[in-house]
């Protein structure tokens, strides 16, 4: 087994045994399933509301966990000095980061799978036909958590976990502003300088709105396959870029 896989497995095992992740997952499942109880009141179109609220909850869970896990994974190991004996092995720092990140992705993927299933179950209880398309935004939330987690990991190589989390939050909020908003802002009385600043900021950060497909799915609109592939490739490129930056920064750091 390659060192990356060994370290990923170590991360997953630790994460499961610490139980913090399991508890938050349990609470998220509870919040997803609880709305089904409200259907007893017979609200019309409640399945759509459940879908909407459920997918929003899933996305928030993914973002929250990405900010927390991404910004604390490396500083936690540094603070507890658990990484010293590991880095004394014949492995590179890049392998260490990749192992940690892969473990994080698997944990996020599994959690989101559980939440996705819980959502489908909730919808089934409401009598809605199981629509696998619901899983598209779930999968894209994992990708989004991957990009955000990679950024937080990068930020945590040069700043405190709290600051890394704040920077991640900023990236997510600014990067998540829909392109239509930006276009509207740029065309409605913004000065040239303001326009240039906005374009420059947007150029150097991922556009998370590309990965937000909740609304069309909730409203039953079809998402072109080509768009999906392009969105996945887009997310993967940003993830890779942040991981490379994390390695570049981590390699230079004295531990």
């Amino acid at each position: 087994m390659s060192p990356v896989l060994v370290l990923a497995r170590l991360y997953i095992t630790e994460s499961m045994r610490r139980q913090l992740h399991l508890i938050t997952l349990f609470l998220a499942v509870l919040m997803l399933v609880l709305p089904t109880l409200f259907n007893a009141f017979g609200m019309t179109g409640f399945d759509r509301v459940t879908k909407d609220v459920g997918l929003t909850l899933l996305s928030l869970y993914a973002v929250g966990m990405a900010l927390f896990l991404g910004s604390t994974a490396l500083p936690g190991d540094l603070e507890h000095r658990t990484l010293h004996p590991l880095l004394a092995r014949p492995i590179s720092r890049m392998q260490y980061l990749l192992g940690k990140f892969l473990g994080y992705l698997v944990v996020m993927g599994l959690s989101m799978a559980v939440l996705g299933l819980a959502l489908l179950t909730a919808l089934a209880v409401l009598g809605t036909r199981a629509d696998p398309a619901v899983l598209i935004p779930v999968a894209l939330s994992v990708l989004e958590a991957g990009v955000l987690g990679a950024f937080c990991l990068f930020a945590s190589t040069f700043c405190s976990p709290a600051l890394a989390g704040v920077l991640g939050c900023f990236l997510y909020i600014v990067g998540g502003i829909p392109q239509t908003f930006i276009t509207f802002f740029l065309s409605s009385g913004s000065t040239q300088v303001q326009g240039a600043v906005v374009r420059a900021i947007r150029l150097f950060m991922p556009h998370f709105d590309v990965l937000h497909l909740k609304d069309p799915i909730v409203h039953g609109e079809a998402v072109p396959e080509a768009y999906l592939l392009a969105a996945v490739a887009y997310g993967l490129v940003w993830m890779l870029l942040f991981l490379l930056l994390a390695d570049w920064s981590f390699e230079r750091r004295d531990l």
Partner: peptide, 21 residues
């Protein structure tokens, strides 16, 4: 370098390990 670390075993000053393992 990873190659140099093939030759050594290391005990850190404050030995902390993954406590849930």
């Amino acid at each position: 370098t990873p190659a140099s670390r093939r030759h050594l075993g290391y005990l850190p000053e404050t030995a902390v390990y993954h406590e849930f393992m």
